[in-house]
């Protein structure tokens, strides 16, 4: 798509805002609509848009499939890590109230587990896209 200037320029302008919006949806999930799942999908959509406009080869250079697989697995680890952090700090599994003083702990805990969800969903969506887009049609 080397000749499609409008698409290329438009995508270059849009992609940073899509990523920022993904982060906003994640960190603002306590206060407004959204949360980890939506944020992960939005963040992945930025990469999918990049891959659609600039080609799969460039996208794989930016984010190799292995990195996406690692993201998908690390999210679950982050989620469990927040759970075990509650035990380490003297509470129960998934006990957010020991993470910080008063209700701040709830916010920390929710942002922590949602970070795990974001990482997993982002990795999963990008890996799915690579799995579909990376296949070639075999004409027999």
């Amino acid at each position: 798509m080397d000749d499609r200037v409008i698409l290329r320029v438009g995508a270059k302008i849009l992609i940073p805002f899509i990523m920022i919006f993904g982060l906003y949806v994640h960190f603002h999930g306590d206060y407004g609509p959204g949360g980890g799942f939506q944020a992960g999908v939005i963040f992945a959509a930025a990469f999918v848009l990049y891959a659609l406009i600039f080609g799969l080869g460039n996208a794989i250079q930016v984010l190799p499939p292995k990195a996406a697989y690692i993201c998908a697995a690390m999210g679950v680890v982050i989620y469990l890590g927040v759970g075990f952090l509650g035990i380490i700090l003297g509470g129960q599994f998934m006990d957010y109230s020991v993470l910080a003083y008063s209700y701040t702990g709830q916010h920390y805990g929710i942002i922590g587990v949602e970070l795990g969800v974001v990482t997993t969903v982002f990795g999963v969506m990008v890996a799915l896209f690579y799995a579909f887009a990376g296949r070639r049609r075999v004409d027999s």
Partner: peptide
Amino acid sequence: HVPNVVTSVLASYRSYDTM
């Protein structure tokens, strides 16, 4: 003290389910 009820249910009350 989380204003969005959906988030507080999903990630705090039901964090096992979301895990």
